[in-house]
Deep mutational scan, measured.
Amino acid sequence: KLATQLLVDLAEGCHTHHFNSLLDIIEKVMARSLSPPPELEERDVAAYSASLEDVKTAVLGLLVILQTKLYTLPASHATRVYEMLVSHIQLHYKHSYTLPIASSIRLQAFDFLLLLRADSLHRLGLPNKDGVVRFSPYCVCDYMEPERGSEKKTSGPLSPPTGPPGPAPAGPAVRLGSVPYSLLFRVLLQCLKQESDWKVLKLVLGRLPESLRYKVLIFTSPCSVDQLCSALCSMLSGPKTLERLRGAPEGFSRTDLHLAVVPVLTALISYHNYLDKTKQREMVYCLEQGLIHRCASQCVVALSICSVEMPDIIIKALPVLVVKLTHISATASMAVPLLEFLSTLARLPHLYRNFAAEQYASVFAISLPYTNPSKFNQYIVCLAHHVIAMWFIRCRLPFRKDFVPFITKGLRSNVLLSFDDTPEKDSFRARSTSLNERPKSLRIARPPKQGLNNSPPVKEFKESSAAEAFRCRSISVSEHVVRSRIQTSLTSASLGSADENSVAQADDSLKN
């Protein structure tokens, strides 16, 4: 292990032709098999893994070397290190390495390699500790012929580059190093199909959405987006994914797998022009299946994007999809995704031109529960009313008269009656009930004795009459309010007539 670390330190600071010789020695160290011998017992696995620490030291050392060589000349050094790393990870899946030390190597290698970024000039870069990406002036992410390196360097940008540029090249004859992302992409596909350690798979799935944002990485080298989509959909639809995973937390289920895969599918929607129609349908189907899991909100957001990006695919699945959405409970976490999906859909009339009455009724059935102001915040309630109004205007004229009683009944049950079921009123009724029952229970537990009763009969009569009056008032709060309003209006009217009579009498006395 110490000798391997010494080789790594020497290679990191070497800029001459001896660098390749040092890498040859490190490569021989990495070539050791990580498969346990067949006769190895389970209690000896930890000791055997400790004997392979030099392999881990070599791989982690290459990660440090690549981070240094990416910004220094010659660029061919970075290319050689990158290829060695990718080849080593491929061996893991070729020979099915399952030892804990092998999983640790893959975890740290993917953690580093999935941080690679590219700008519009195809320059590769890595983020620093502050998250700012520094791009290399010597390494690009696409394949290029050595003699055409300078031509590639002087080509115009596709868009303004992001991030601070690296140091300027030493001279005009500098050759750019090619670090094609397709090599890593193929290893990522192998990981999605064969990885057995949940920690490694979770890391890859968590980092892929951010990497897919940099389309330069994908399009400048032959990366098959179709295969990526197929691998992701197979993970969700195939039963073998959960069987092969180990190291998963207790209670791990298909729902947890959906939570990890759906963000990658959402990021892949922007590549729909490069996906086969069959793959697009598979993607939409997987998102529909996710509606029954805890990732339902993410799936609804993804389907909203699909309705804009892939209208030809979503239009066929939309009638059944809208009916499925009615089975989702009206909760605060689902309110905004569902209502925004319906609001977006209302502005795309070509998608729902074939809707029948059942689909329009489903839209109103989804939106009406969110009009309850005692359960949802003001934004959700306003958005629900907006969706109902928009869809009522957009639905066909023959359907409107049939939906009017349905909508008014839903609004009455969710908006008007919600004020009668407020917690304050319920607590008031509970308190009044307890007050009504309390005197009775006290009389049963403690019967009054005439000799020891010091309270006069008049006081008892007053208290009983007050309790009886309170019971009468607490029967119905709404009736009490109505009666008080009527009494107030009658009182004001009587006072007004009394004032008029007094004024008339005063005038008569003055005349006399």
Rank of each mutant, 00 (worst) to 15 (best):
A50S: 08
S51P: 04
S51W: 02
S51E: 10
L52D: 01
L52C: 14
K56Y: 11
V59L: 03
L60I: 13
L60R: 14
L60H: 14
G61F: 00
G61V: 00
L62K: 00
L62D: 01
L63I: 13
V64Q: 15
I65V: 08
Q67Y: 04
Q67T: 06
Q67R: 13
T68Y: 06
K69W: 01
K69I: 00
K69D: 00
L70W: 02
L70F: 05
L70C: 03
T72R: 15
A75Y: 06
A75N: 05
S76N: 08
S76T: 09
S76R: 08
H77F: 05
H77M: 05
A78W: 02
A78I: 03
R80K: 08
V81I: 06
V81C: 08
V81K: 00
Y82G: 01
E83T: 10
L85R: 02
V86Y: 02
V86L: 11
V86M: 07
S87W: 10
S87E: 11
H88W: 01
H88C: 01
I89K: 00
I89L: 11
Q90W: 09
Q90T: 09
Q90A: 14
L91C: 14
H92Y: 00
H92A: 01
Y93H: 00
K94N: 12
H95E: 08
Y97P: 01
T98V: 08
L99C: 05
P100T: 04
P100Q: 06
S103H: 06
S103M: 06
S104T: 10
I105V: 05
L116D: 01
S120I: 10
L121R: 07
H122Y: 03
L124H: 02
G125C: 04
P127T: 05
P127Y: 04
P127G: 04
N128S: 05
K129Y: 10
K129M: 10
G131W: 03
V132P: 06
V132M: 10
V132D: 11
V132F: 11
V133P: 07
V133K: 03
V133T: 12
V133F: 14
R134F: 05
F135I: 05
S136I: 01
P137M: 04
C139R: 02
D142K: 05
Y143N: 08
M144E: 10
M144K: 09
E145D: 12
E145S: 09
E151S: 10
E151M: 12
K153M: 11
G156S: 12
G156F: 10
G156Y: 13
P157L: 10
P157Y: 11
S159F: 09
P160M: 07
P161Q: 11
T162K: 13
T162M: 13
G163M: 13
P165V: 11
P165F: 09
G166Y: 15
P172L: 10
A173E: 08
R175Q: 11
G177N: 08
G177C: 08
V179Q: 02
V179N: 02
P180V: 02
P180Y: 02
P180N: 06
S182G: 04
S182W: 04
L184S: 05
V187F: 01
V187Y: 00
L188I: 12
L189K: 01
L189E: 03
L189A: 03
Q190M: 09
C191R: 00
L192I: 13
L192P: 00
L192D: 00
K193A: 10
Q194I: 08
Q194T: 08
Q194D: 13
E195T: 00
E195K: 00
S196L: 06
V200D: 01
V200E: 01
L201C: 02
K202F: 03
V204I: 05
V204D: 00
V204H: 00
L205H: 00
R207E: 02
L208H: 00
P209H: 10
P209I: 07
P209M: 06
E210Y: 07
E210K: 05
E210L: 08
S211Q: 09
L212E: 01
Y214F: 10
Y214D: 06
Y214M: 06
Y214H: 10
K215C: 03
V216Q: 09
L217I: 03
F219E: 10
F219D: 10
F219H: 09
T220V: 02
T220R: 03
S221I: 02
S221V: 04
C223D: 04
S224D: 10
V225K: 01
V225A: 05
C229W: 03
A231N: 06
L232H: 01
L232I: 06
L232F: 01
C233E: 02
M235C: 03
L236N: 01
L236D: 01
P239T: 11
P239F: 08
K240N: 14
L242T: 08
L242N: 04
E243A: 11
E243G: 07
R244T: 05
R244M: 05
R244E: 03
L245S: 02
L245M: 11
L245Y: 06
R246S: 09
G247C: 09
A248S: 10
A248W: 04
P249S: 07
P249W: 04
E250Y: 07
F252L: 12
